[in-house]
Amino acid sequence: MSTSTLNAQTRAFGLSVAITSIVSALLVIAKESNEDTLLKFMKTVTPHHWITHGLFNLILFVALGLILAKSNNGQGPALDDDKLINVTAGGFLLSCFIIAGFFLIGG
């Protein structure tokens, strides 16, 4: 039985922010490290790889959020509130550091 005071959408989309942010940061490394394959492919999907990247993020974020909101009998992910806040903020910050670190070293 969950004792959380947060609604299912907050729990689900919070976790979705963390997961999607990190996946997005890893996609940055993957596409910039594979210009002839992945980056080239992303440029064929839309006029610019950045648009493809943004669309990918948005679809993943919404899909994950909607799926996770239905988990745990409709209560959202079974995570302690404090842990959920840490995971959301930590995931977002980690993605920022991964991206900045990659371009700091690569640039």
Binding site: S21, A25, V28, L58, F61, F92, C96
Partner: peptide
């Protein structure tokens, strides 16, 4: 960095 961190910021802002 800006163009890619912005994509994550957009998710947090939507949240």
């Amino acid at each position: 960095t800006k163009e890619h961190v912005f994509l994550a910021l957009l998710l947090l802002g939507t949240f």
